[in-house]
Amino acid sequence: MAISRRTITILVAAGVVVVVGIAIAAVALNARSPEPPGPGTRVLASAQSKATDAASRAAAGSPEYDAAQYLSEQPTAIWLTPEGDPTDVVGERIADLAEEARAQSARLALVVYGLPERDCGGQSAGGLDDDGYAAWTGAIGDALRAAADTSPLVMLEPDSLALAPECGNVSERVSQLASAVDAIASDSTWIYVDGGHSDWLPAGEMAGLIEQIDRASDDGRGIRGFATNVSNFQPTDDEVAYAHDVAARLDGLHAVIDTSRNGAGSNGEWCNPPGRLVGEPGGTIGDDVVDTNLWIKPPGESDGECNGGPAAGRWWPEAAIGLTREVIVGD
């Protein structure tokens, strides 16, 4: 059967449309799949931080002001808790933070910290029940998808996995965290679950816990990897070695390391240990396993009512002064 010129023209035009459509889809996919963090990554230094608030209330030129002002200028993750950012307002909070991130050409870095029986009733006790947690993380996921252009980084529930064997709730934690991953995951959000630290669980045990989250998640996009040293003080080199040891037991997962307060290493204490210092600025390291380092625990915020500190998460001027004593000398 002969094919007319008109038919050939239509077929060619249709082919062009298909090719263009594929190209557009590829561009859209790339737009939804940003680069993972690496050396040089800059995250938001938010004006909504407790350091910024403390600087605004301190007397100019005082040690309290100098420490708070310095820390307010450092790119640092923002912690979301249901106590401070409940379900009905957390989306608006994330939208505001995303606007700040865009203005600074920075990425949004968040810590999600509100799961049931948080911290096993320890210094940071609290959190939501299962239904409340599902609603809260769902609202967070919706807001992060709306802020996809900021390529968000999410550190999901620090200490939750490493504490689970001690608390006797591994199966519950795996289920809760896997559901949270499914609620938060998107093509533009990079999620890191709890990876403990180098002086806590052996690498094999930690990897086994992380692997359960990766297997249990139903979404298919899953997690980027794990975060180590969050709110702790272990030396960076030790954490890099530990991250490699853990990752070697997992399939393609990566790590980020908290260096916010490890400038003087650890003295073996975890709760407001004296004599500590801020560590390397975020975005200064990275390799084929460790995506980069970040300031995840905000320096100057208390670990809890220990060593003279206020309640967990409260601003503590004395700690801020001590942590920054070597970086603002002469200011």
Rank of each mutant, 00 (worst) to 15 (best):
R173E: 10
A143R: 14
A134S: 14
S179H: 13
L163R: 01
L144T: 07
L161T: 04
A125K: 12
W136F: 06
L153Y: 02
S160M: 09
L163D: 03
A178W: 05
T137V: 07
A135G: 11
S171E: 14
S124W: 05
R118C: 03
T150I: 06
R173G: 05
D149R: 09
L163Q: 07
S171A: 15
S186A: 14
D130C: 05
L156M: 09
A185N: 10
L144K: 06
D119H: 02
R118W: 00
G132S: 11
L156C: 09
Y192T: 08
V193I: 09
V174D: 00
V170P: 04
A148S: 13
T150D: 12
D159K: 02
S124K: 13
G168L: 03
V170C: 10
V181Y: 02
L128C: 10
S171H: 10
V154T: 14
A183Y: 02
V193D: 01
S188C: 06
S188A: 11
D130V: 13
A183M: 05
A185W: 10
S175F: 12
D182M: 00
A178G: 15
W190C: 07
T137L: 05
A164V: 08
G132Q: 14
L156A: 08
E157Q: 09
S186W: 09
V174A: 01
I140N: 09
A164M: 04
E157V: 08
E117P: 04
